[in-house]
């Protein structure tokens, strides 16, 4: 039976290396056949906003296509595809209150709305839990 990791994240996108590390951990766990629960709250609910757009780099004189600017919505969508490919579960919950505060409810396909009771339930059921706070 596959193990399950629950990870809670609160870092907003494009702020610090913590978002990248969090996504790397989720990616590595899925590749190992581990089911992953993600509880995104506070700024982390913006990781999955559908309206994110890549941009050109005027300093370098590069176009959108040339710049290939990565967006977190793309990374998270890739994680859902990876989970499907590996036959494991990625359950991603965005904290509803945090979403409403930020007007950040237009997501890519995959995440669902929830709250702290979901995190509590996951912690009880999971093999391991990692809480990544901000500074």
């Amino acid at each position: 039976m596959a193990k399950t990791l629950t990870i809670s994240i609160m870092e907003p996108p494009y702020e610090s290396a913590t978002s990248t590390t969090s996504l790397r951990i989720i990616d590595a766990a899925l590749r190992k056949g581990i089911n992953v629960n993600v509880f995104a709250y506070e700024g982390a609910v913006s990781l999955t906003i559908k309206d994110q757009q890549p941009h050109p780099n005027p300093v370098h004189g590069t176009s959108v296509e040339e710049e290939k600017h990565p967006t977190t919505k793309f990374f998270v969508a890739s994680l859902f595809e990876l989970a499907k490919e590996k036959g494991v579960k990625l359950d991603w919950v965005n904290c509803g209150f945090c979403v409403d505060e930020r007007g950040a409810g237009n997501w890519i396909e995959g995440p669902r709305r929830g709250g702290p009771p979901q995190l509590h339930e996951w912690v009880q059921e999971s093999d391991a839990t990692l809480v990544i706070p901000t500074k």
């Binding site: 193990k3 590595a28 766990a29 391991a128 809480v131």
Partner: peptide
Amino acid sequence: DIDALVDHIMANGTKVLW
């Protein structure tokens, strides 16, 4: 690598602090 970190996180009975 990050795989090793995941292995440590998932090891039975390990308490993880960030």
